[in-house]
Design a binder for these strands. Structure first.
Ligand code: FES
Ligand code: FES
Lengths: 152, 152
DNA sequence: TAGTATACGACCAATTATGTCGGCGTTTCA
DNA sequence: TGAAACGCCGACATAATTGGTCGTATACTA
């Protein structure tokens, strides 16, 4: 519940890995998978999704692989999660399109939609760069602040 | 992903329903389930969990049922979700206790733990009362503001 | 003591998440 | 020019989680 899927986790890990190595031209799915000990084929599929979403650039052939398509600073955690797991709604019903069967009775989704937006906002304010930077063990380095206001 | 379970949803709906009827002494699981068209037995189990967690008071026998054990204002959405789905961690690994197998390789969970706390904070700042109040269709009524700061 | 309710655990069913396989297209380089 | 290293894609198979049901025991009321 309210938990990132492993896929999203893997995706974030991979992007972070790439962000930490800006000098390299490209890294293969296998390289990254090995670095973290996660299933290579699964990661490959995830990276493909991220490529389709435009977050990565891919290159086939020998010495091919994946590279960030933009600055790490310009890629938000939200985009990654969205690309992998699709749009997320904290409520069970999507509320979009046709809504769920309970729509008339369930009066709770409206306020929760605000919560949903708030969380999305938090995720949007975090970039891959933020994740990568946090490497320096005792650094007080860039202290990124995200301020979110929730108005019910 | 990143979605409330139906159980949590049902739980919130039920508490909201109770909060909207402060005058009633108690409502049975069936009453509430019927009001929303959700499985009565399932809701019963949920209400039992909430009772164990101390959010509700229960009373068996005729005219028995459940009632809020505190002011709606004093019950947060976080407590409800926590009582039903257990502690939540946005990261796949719990990080507590023994952590997951990936611990040494996965360097992403630490920053995400902050995000986790932020979201928990948002949820904690929302009370059942807030959900119930939001009923008045065009009211600009109580505008509850929750300010959350995220520092990576 | 009949009737209405909660309490709780075992169990099954549905859904979703995770991971695998096989075949195909591309690029590099010897 | 062809083998190796790679990405691309869809169809599985499996595992884990959720959602929901049943049966029975217990508690309270009238
Ligand atoms: S869960 Fe669909 S309307 Fe509330
Ligand atoms: S998922 Fe467990 S350490 Fe990252």
């Amino acid at each position: 519940m309210l938990k990132l899927t492993k896929k999203a986790d893997y995706g974030l890990m991979a992007l972070k890995y790439l962000a930490e190595r800006p000098e390299t031209v490209a890294l293969s799915a296998k390289d990254i998978a090995d670095a973290y000990g996660i299933p290579a084929q699964l990661l490959a599929k995830i990276l493909q999704q991220l490529t389709r979403a435009g977050l990565l650039r891919s290159h086939a052939g020998m010495n091919g692989g994946y590279a960030l398509s933009r600055e790490a600073r310009e890629i938000s955690a939200y985009e990654v999660i969205h690309a992998i797991d699709g749009p997320f709604f904290i409520t069970s019903c999507t509320k979009g399109a046709k809504g769920c069967e309970l729509t008339p009775s369930c009066t709770i989704k409206e306020p929760l939609a605000r919560v949903n937006d708030t969380i999305a906002g938090v995720l949007k304010s975090i970039s891959i760069q933020d994740l990568a930077e946090h490497e320096h063990p005792h650094g007080r380095g860039h202290e990124v602040k995200a301020l979110v206001s929730l108005t019910l």
